[in-house]
Design a protein around this nucleic acid. Structure first.
Lengths: 225, 225
DNA sequence: GATGGCATCACCAGTTCTGGGGATAGCGGG
DNA sequence: CCCGCTATCCCCAGAACTGGTGATGCCATC
């Protein structure tokens, strides 16, 4: 919340639906402190024009025909490192959220967000914040949790059980695992029941998720400089 | 999901400074829709009393004498998984933020936050959001920006399919997924068959392995230094 | 030498998945 | 206007998994 009084925030819009696009533009232009400096109906157009226009904030739809919004952000960001990108979308799933943020977006709002909140989000992102709908924020926060759990449990697996789990994770059927380990189906079955008990899970998929959750290359957020 | 009383939100306060503590309590008790159900001057006291009180939201100072607020959250959370913890602090450094979130906090507000916003944060966290001061949010978002890219195949999944896949990865049964998505078992079944086709897999586990194997940032912390 | 963990095997009942076959409806492009 | 994609729903049958109950032998440790 800085210089939004004397100088308005320059906003670009990337949105394929002409109606939504123009109503967004109208909203922005009619609000003091904001101005819409360009509009684009496709990622391709945005990539060509936005670097010239140099907006301070970009509202980016995710679901664009052709190149999608996430890719568009990824390519735009290096050219305009100072511009803040807000994703505007209907998708709430974590995959999309993480991808968008990883690509360089700093805000993530749902399309259903009321106009006043959207304007606030633009102001916030411009002022160094990261606006996002409340449920989106919760999902992001959740990605920080559940990280400390599994270690001790996996250690308690016997060597044979660990082997089975490994194969389980690759999607093999019980009988395929039996063949590869040269034991009977029944033995595999028993091992698996023991694995489930030890890991406190009730299905193959939960076990695998725990397993993969550990040996995953971890994302370091080096406080770095 | 949640709390029984739509009457008022039950809040506990953990804060060592008696002045701050009582002014927070006063703020909460004097605001309709909120009530302060307990106050604690130390983590040790909070650990003993809060499990009995069962608040819906806990405001937790980070800088406590003896056991700090992050540790307090870490130990409290298993006993009160439904309670939402908001860290309240002057520290803006990333280490503190990430540690607090990893410990189980769902909100992170600066102490200088104006009263009205703090009350809003309590409501938000209670409603499934993750309130945080705007600069905090930005730092969290930045932690995603070094992470890698998206997967080609996963892109071809429709939004709905992607949602199903996420729930699949968490080990939910078809019928549980159906409930959560508010569609029928048959629909989930169909989505899953399409997912398998698109990802070229033949079972839930293979799909999940692909899903977990590709993108998906994880934030893990070495037991801190 | 008893106890407990590990690995191996078996049978059985019930549940859940997987993979076919449909169907309807909306939305968009050609 | 038809075709393709998405999303929603339904039925069926066979395969696969889950969770009990066993059992045997080996090898440690106490």
């Amino acid at each position: 919340m800085t210089k939004t009084k004397s100088m308005s925030i320059a906003v670009s819009i990337v949105e394929d639906d002409p109606q939504v696009r123009s109503s967004l533009a109208k909203l922005i232009d009619s609000s003091p402190g904001y101005r819409c400096v360009s509009r684009h109906g496709s990622a391709e157009d945005a990539l060509l024009e936005i670097p010239k226009v140099k907006p301070e904030v970009v509202l980016m739809d995710i679901n664009l025909p052709g190149l999608n919004g996430v890719e568009c952000v990824r390519r735009l960001k290096p050219q305009l490192p100072g511009a803040q990108m807000i994703m505007l979308t209907v998708y709430q799933n974590t995959e999309h959220i993480f991808n968008a943020l990883a690509a360089g977006a700093t805000g993530y709002m749902l399309k259903q967000t009321p106009p006043a909140e959207l304007l606030l989000a633009i102001k916030e992102v411009h002022g160094g914040g990261s606006p996002m709908s409340s449920h989106i924020a919760r999902k992001i926060v959740q990605s920080f949790q559940h990280t400390a759990t599994a270690s001790a449990e996996a250690e308690s697996l016997s060597p044979r059980e660990a082997e089975v789990l490994e194969l389980l994770a690759k999607g093999f059927l019980y009988k395929e695992i039996a063949e590869q380990m040269k034991v009977s189906y029944a033995t595999v079955h028993t091992h698996i029941r023991h694995i489930y008990e030890k890991l406190h899970v009730r299905s193959r998929t939960e076990a695998v998720a725990k397993h993969l959750g550990q040996n995953r290359p971890r994302h370091e957020f080096a406080p770095a400089a």
